[in-house]
Design a binder for these strands. Structure first.
Lengths: 161, 161
DNA sequence: ATTCAATTGTTGCGTTTGCAACTAAATGGA
DNA sequence: TCCATTTAGTTGCAAACGCAACAATTGAAT
């Protein structure tokens, strides 16, 4: 690896994430999409979702997602309709065109990037790293609804030591 | 963990990275910075760097970084000077004010986020996951200067199989 | 020496971003 | 029932983003 000096896990993940996203962006550019749009597309392939669910499932901020959906709707890739059961929610679904696009490009999606990332990994290593990463996410989640307080507390603790 | 269905490594990392960055952004906002600025600040604490080096070391895109440096220069946190040895390069260094700010907040930097992430990890697990992640970065790097070709090749291979 | 290529950093430009404020609908008391 | 609170989604706005084009400097080839 390069002469990276900051070997903290968050930073290393930042590097990986950034590079993978760059790759996906280049690939998706001819389709008029970027990685967020690609994520939405493939997520919807598994079934309709409300905007909120999509935000949670794709990790895209809500207002960003709302505008992204408007764009993709304009591209004819998806449709929004208000939920009859809950008038606040909006249900997003793929159009035929969107579904076709998704199916057409499904093979080159994340699996490929994961393949690159995990080259030379044994199955145990792959499983292990996935488990560890999931545990990190759990940790983040459990650090609280307002995780900043946990941080401040940690800082105070050390400061007073 | 939530009801996340996409358990691909890149996506899981995307979630972790996004959440950590959100935390850092909230923390750094009172300082007038965001995570990129924080990274620059602490990177420079280890010594002066050219703009290019900073970009590589922090994972910030070059034009974005250039403008970020202008802002931070305006805040009085750092200074730019042209390299006497190579007239193309610009050397970035902390001002006294920038150094003071960095030192002041050093304790709450990444270590804390890593602490949250790695809660409950044994030292072996922590070392292991770091090694595996570094291997992923190596894989990315070796996938070529233009890694998109590797991807296309992978797609073609499967398509013809 | 001259010319062509590569590297470094900045900027123009249109797009996208995230926060905060907002509307609208549903929920939970009193 | 009525009102306060919560939740879903959109939008205004200023800031930031990335790509591509650019100038300036260095390096390499002949």
């Amino acid at each position: 690896m390069r002469d990276i000096e900051d070997r903290s896990i968050p930073f290393l993940m930042h590097l990986i994430t950034g590079q993978v996203e760059e790759l996906v962006n280049k690939w998706a550019r001819p389709l008029g999409l970027r990685i967020e749009g690609v994520r939405v597309l493939f997520r919807l392939l598994a079934g309709d979702r409300t905007v909120n669910e999509l935000a949670r499932l794709t990790g895209v901020e809500l207002s960003t997602l709302s505008r992204l959906l408007t764009r993709m709707e304009g591209m004819g890739l998806l449709a929004r309709r208000r939920d009859a059961a809950d008038g606040r929610s909006v249900i997003v679904s793929l159009t035929a065109k969107g579904r076709k696009l998704a199916l057409q490009h499904q093979p080159v999606y994340f699996k490929d990037y994961e393949t690159i990332l995990m080259k030379g990994f044994s199955p145990e290593e792959a499983r292990h790293v996935r488990d560890l990463i999931v545990r990190m996410l759990d940790n983040l989640e459990q650090s609280g609804a307002d995780p900043i307080s946990a941080l401040n507390a940690a800082g105070d603790r050390r400061a007073s030591a």
